[in-house]
Design a protein around this nucleic acid. Structure first.
Length: 489
RNA sequence: GCCGGUAUCGUCUAGGGGUUAGGACACGUGGUUCUCAGCCACGGGACCGGGGUUCGAAUCCCCGUACCGGUACCA
């Protein structure tokens, strides 16, 4: 039987990296085994859920290229895929469980229970629902029912051990005695998470539940529910959490947590996918940079490690740099040009017709090995795409202010005027020749030149940069740069 | 407190009764060089602690410890 897995986010927040990785693992598993990957929106908490969050989650998944076979927008045989549209099913299931003796109505006032719980906690004691309503006499029950008294429905947790074999952790067992009779339907008629997730996983014929580690302790409840409902219990795989450098659950405190923020920050979706896949999972050999196809071909739940994983931005940056370096010309142009356009750096103003797309590609090619994130292109391309140069004060102070730079730059300007054609070898010869004539090292001339035309001390190779900028612009900038030089000497 | 999970370089991990405990990121050094990046080479760096089983334990068992998660009419 082809596996059926699902990602079931609650739209109470954006898609964070932890959720994205859980979705990715489900997706990889489905693709690996020719199964189906469903997306189900768990929006039973109407207060905290919102349509915007649903959109954000869908956009996040789409950006990462994690496509779903059934779910919102694509539909499927088990539609609807929004739990808010499936409420009758949960309610009916709760009724069935009451009828079969697996659950019972609870009329206890939530305030009373909360009070007792807090009192017990204050004394450092464990507290569990006392089953007061299970002890109600039939007469009293009939009375309450006749009054239409509000009530929740609780699952009657049986005695004995509940165990399951987790694909990541191996066998896990819980004693029924440690699990309280949990609510499955609230007094307002809405299901709790436990009920809705099990009813849907059963109805949607989910075969593997791959979800966060934080659900391990809910799992015995779910196993019990599947059994009481007469449904097949799926296999479970609890994947460890992604945490910050302080080992705590990832939160805003640690920086960006939404996958869409990573898009904005200049990360490529394939790099993100590759990085996320390796957080808590390894193929078993030394491969790290892997295509989506390789990821799919190698993925196995058993390869997921048991401990939490620290989200290491430095490695993400490296990974992203790998993917940027691998971009071919067409892809480079297609991914970077829109960013330049948004920043108003491209296309150039009317008077700059000498800068073609081929010219831009040359520039991007020079910048490519220097970029870790797409946003790096923006900053580094700026001096080549704008008419005015932003001069770094410290760089000017160090390389342009000395009195002798004025004459050195003057000499270089003169030499550049004579370069024909204005290509790299010619420019290089001019620069080196000028330095020699001045009796200084090439580097001593190159540094002020770089600051003069770029505005700062770092850039691609100086000869490529000069050629890219063109003779006129280079000379104009060098002339302007002379004004920083102290008069005299 | 109770229940559950986890523990290999700073980080992600491979491995696993006998290995020089492997790789990657980060870090350091050197090389290339006009800077930065890149690239290349080299280097430092780990099996949580204590018992046990065994000829031999990082690996298996037990006990601790630490960390994480759960402990709701949230999901």
């Amino acid at each position: 039987m082809a596996p059926r897995v699902r990602f079931a986010p609650s739209p109470t927040g954006y898609l964070h990296v932890g959720g994205a990785r859980t979705a990715l693992f489900n997706y990889l598993y489905a693709r690996r085994h020719g199964g189906r990957f469903l997306l189900r929106i768990e929006d039973t908490d109407v207060e905290r859920s919102s349509a915007d969050m649903v959109t954000g989650i869908l956009d996040g998944l789409r950006w990462l290229g994690i496509t779903w076979d059934e779910g919102p927008e694509v539909g499927g045989p088990h539609a609807p895929y929004f739990q808010s549209e499936r409420l009758e099913r949960y309610s009916a299931a709760a009724d069935r469980l009451v009828a079969s003796g697996h659950a019972y109505a609870c009329y206890c006032a939530p305030e009373r229970l909360r009070g007792e719980r807090e009192a017990a906690e204050a004394k450092g004691e464990a507290w569990k629902y006392d089953r007061a309503c299970l002890a109600l006499t039939p007469e009293r029950l009939a009375e309450l029912r006749a009054e239409g008294a509000p009530h929740a429905i609780r699952f009657k947790v049986p005695e004995g051990t509940v165990s399951f074999n987790d694909a990541v952790h191996g066998p896990i067992a819980f004693e029924g005695a440690t699990i309280e009779d949990f609510v499955i339907r609230r007094s307002d008629g809405y299901p709790t998470y436990h009920l809705s997730v099990v009813v849907d996983d059963a109805e949607m014929a989910i075969t593997q539940v791959v979800r966060g580690d934080d659900h391990i302790s809910n799992t015995p409840k779910h196993v019990l529910l599947f059994q009481a409902l007469g449904a097949a219990v799926p296999e479970f795989a609890h994947v460890p959490l992604i945490v910050g450098t302080d080992k705590k659950r990832l939160s805003k405190r640690h920086g960006a947590t939404s996958v869409l923020e990573y898009q904005k920050a200049g990360y490529l979706p394939d790099a993100m996918v590759n990085f996320l896949a390796l957080l808590g999972w390894a193929p078993g050999d030394d491969r790290e940079v892997m295509t989506r196809e390789e990821l799919i071909a190698s993925f196995a739940l058993e390869g997921i490690s048991g401990g939490n994983a620290v989200f290491d931005t430095a490695k993400l940056d490296w990974m992203n740099g790998q993917y940027i370096a691998a971009l071919d010309d067409a892809a480079l142009l297609a991914t970077v040009t829109p960013l330049l356009e948004t920043a108003g750096l491209w296309p150039l103003a009317a008077g700059s017709a000498d800068r073609s797309e081929a010219w831009l590609l040359t520039l991007l090619g020079l910048l490519k090995p220097r970029a870790k994130r797409l946003t790096d292109f923006l900053e580094q391309a700026r001096p080549f795409l704008t008419d005015t140069v932003d001069y770094d004060t410290a760089a000017v102070e160090k390389h342009l202010s000395p009195a002798h730079t004025r004459e050195q730059l003057a000499a270089l300007i003169g030499a550049l005027r004579g370069v024909e054609p204005f290509t790299e070898p010619g420019v290089e010869a001019a620069v080196r020749g000028t330095a020699e004539a001045l009796g200084i090292k090439a580097g001593a001339l190159i540094h002020p030149t770089r600051v003069g035309i770029i505005g700062k001390t770092t850039s691609p190779g100086i000869f490529e940069s000069i050629v890219l900028l063109g003779r006129e612009r280079t000379i104009a900038r060098l002339e302007h740069a002379q004004s920083f030089s102290a008069v005299g000497a």
